[in-house]
Write a protein that binds this DNA or RNA. Structure first.
Lengths: 128, 128
DNA sequence: GATATACTTCAACCGTCGTTGAACTACTTC
DNA sequence: GAAGTAGTTCAACGACGGTTGAAGTATATC
């Protein structure tokens, strides 16, 4: 039994992680945070998005552990966001392991005539 | 202007790529294909999914360039699927570049009092 | 040609999720 | 304490996409 169900390489967990990232505006926010931008208002200006929408996406990134929250000690109304480097490293490692080309095994069919193969360019059956 | 809109690291393109992967059953299919399984029927048996559903997910993976199609030369009813190693390598490289922890820049706020920071554990304002 | 097989395409259903505007909370300043 | 600011939460809308069953296509066998 290849410990699979609770491994970080489990497809369900992997998909869960990827769903958070598979969103253009969240990626833009991550991009800006990596560049050092940090408050909600500046993110909103840079991305032309409403503050509540920024807030929503940030909360998802926070739930995923990708983003951390910090308050300003001088004026606590300001909240700063930053990338969680450890989570990012972990994500990178897990992704690299899952989609590692070295994992690709040679063809091992268990059904069909298993004869020679013919490359198909168009699946929609061009042959008339 | 940092060539951004058409770079492989463009958030929109990145999200597009990730959307295809952010799906548990597609990841399971990819997993099996990497292990060498190749025909629709065996995928269906292994994943307990209807053939048309397998077909649908495979077509998305194919559109993303991740999966290639091959017909059996002996009995052309059988269609075999395999991972496109080049696309997988490219994906891995692009992902690694986008989510590279080394990209994280130091804090560079353009608004707020920019005072000292206080770590916040719970955003829901625990202070009463 | 008729039947069977392997797979795809189509149409429809339905839950999920990004988006929006309004209300709410936390904090500071006057 | 009243007003203002930074940000969050709530409720509702609407579109995208995974799922399903039925119909369709390509190929092989009888």
């Amino acid at each position: 039994m290849k410990l699979k169900s609770h491994s970080p390489l489990d497809p369900d967990r992997m998909a869960e992680r990827l769903k958070v990232l598979a969103e253009p505006k969240r990626l833009r926010i991550l991009n800006l945070l990596m560049e050092g931008v940090q408050c909600n208002c500046e993110l909103g200006d840079a991305l032309d998005m409403a503050p509540n929408l920024i807030s929503h996406h940030l909360s998802m990134l926070r739930q995923a552990g990708l983003v951390e929250v910090t308050r300003d000690a001088v004026d606590a109304r300001w909240i700063y966001y930053s990338i969680n480097r450890a989570t990012l490293q972990d994500l990178n490692a897990v992704f690299g392991a899952f989609f590692d080309p070295a994992r690709i095994q040679p063809r091992r069919p268990a059904c069909g005539p298993q004869g020679a193969l013919v490359r198909v360019t168009d699946i929609s059956m061009t042959a008339t």
